[in-house]
Design a protein around this nucleic acid. Structure first.
Lengths: 260, 260
DNA sequence: CGAGCAATTGAGTCGCATCAAGCTAGGTGG
DNA sequence: CCACCTAGCTTGATGCGACTCAATTGCTCG
């Protein structure tokens, strides 16, 4: 890899995964890639079950997930929560806040998590100086919205078993690097209560539904580890079509639409 | 209003509403505003219940809604549909497709609708020549995602009556111009079956729930017309907080973050 | 070894889907 | 002018999926 000089190495290990994700969907020059990795970051350790971005409050920084697992949550008066997205290491969980600092849910750590905070001001400056980076960020936000749309369909129109299967499929593809191939075994440090918040189910029903999936030999979720036994049938069970996640195999011209 | 010269007037009446929406959230110069209104448009008349952007297909144009009502839908194998957004006149229903041409649902006309198609190429060129316009478009996409997040919470965590109340509240605010004040009476040319697709309910249950809301004297939905009788209590019923829709009363500097 | 949290299982209840009519209003043709 | 048709609205009866409450088991850790 490039950028071996002192000082660069740290940034490379920090935001390198993020840049890789961007490159799957957008074309960026070496210079642009380095500019992103040179973003100033401020470490923040968050412990499990801690809300580190409260719902409905403005922030002045974006949260990059270096390690751990984060949920974006909305809330209802009676206290129950609805998770609307799961963010894994390499995700910029609230990139959108750089352009509109309010309106999209709070962020909760599901497990001990290392966040790198990046000031909005730095993100904006980057977008101004490198229009292609602004475009890549914009496209990243669109992908997030596409995932959210599937999430809404999932909540509205499927039964408990299908909803859980869909969530597991989505994570398998995303852990697999978003190129269309699932990772068949991965950590998922969520308790069943938290899975319930994501699937709009109670923990009791999550338990029963996971049991069903296990007995069907589709997938085992136990002790924070997901083992997918039959990817094809799991996709069927979740009515999961990875197209919306991986449709970024555009011809190159489409990865850099605005700026030639 | 400006731009009275021949040829300009037509465009003003076409995309003027769209520019107004953008101005509620982003700062644009006169020149930029005119550049947007000068976008080339191609009329397309769509009749009720017609899918005019099929699910999962790439397009090379954006759809501006000049009149009518449009639903963004996702689909499930068994044939049932889930509406994930409603688009009213003045909305650019799939602005995101300019940057990522696939992945977010299909578009269906709920009533006879006049669409203005705008080639992606023109949108991209505009974004390249006027970075502030690209930023405004980006911000518009974020608002769309914020609405979608609330929609997901709505589907996941509320009962039938609350879900319908929330949808009606959202529309009242948006018809009101997005400045925080609801329009208390508006057309809603949807049949109960279509409301069911939006709220993830059967038409039978939509009917019963609307009856409840009517008997509570909160709102009457009949014959394609919505009459809100008690805005405060309707918001309570839907657990609706308009902040996420109208939190664009930023200080001016925040309406034009990237480019001074 | 007990405390505490999560996973698991059972029994009872409720909200919404499903199936099935009947109703209403607008449109059409004889 | 009335018989008929159709789309949408309304209401009732019944069943299922998910929630709720409650108890038990297993696991981890101090």
């Amino acid at each position: 890899m490039q950028c071996k000089q002192i000082g660069g190495l740290k940034h490379l290990s920090d935001l390198g995964l993020f840049v890789q994700r961007l490159l799957a969907r957008s074309r960026l020059t070496e210079e642009e890639q380095h500019a992103i990795m040179a973003l100033p970051t401020y470490e923040m350790e968050v412990r499990a079950r801690q809300d580190f971005v409260p719902l409905g409050e403005e922030t002045d920084y974006c949260c990059y997930i270096a390690s751990g697992l984060v949920a974006r949550v909305g809330q209802v008066k009676n206290g129950s929560r609805q998770t609307t997205a799961l963010h894994i290491p390499g995700d910029m969980a609230d990139l959108h806040s750089a352009v509109r600092p309010i309106g999209i849910g709070g962020l909760t750590a599901l497990t001990d998590t290392l966040i790198l905070r990046i000031p909005h001001a730095a993100v904006r400056t980057l977008g101004r100086d490198f229009p292609a980076i602004a475009e890549a960020f914009w496209r990243d936000c669109i992908l997030d919205a596409a995932i959210l749309m599937q999430w809404a369909v999932n909540l509205g129109r499927k039964d408990a078993r299908s909803r859980l299967a869909h969530i597991l499929c989505e994570l398998a593809i995303r852990y697999g690097g978003g190129r269309g191939y699932p990772l068949l075994e991965f950590d998922l440090p969520m308790v069943q209560e938290q899975l319930g918040d994501a699937a709009a189910l109670t923990s009791v029903h999550v338990n029963r539904s996971l049991k069903t999936l296990r007995q069907e030999r589709l997938v085992t979720v136990r002790g924070g580890i997901v083992q997918i036994h039959d990817w094809q049938r799991l996709m069927q069970a979740g009515e999961f079509d990875p197209t919306y996640l991986v449709a970024d195999t555009f011809p190159d011209r489409q990865k850099r639409l605005v700026f030639q």
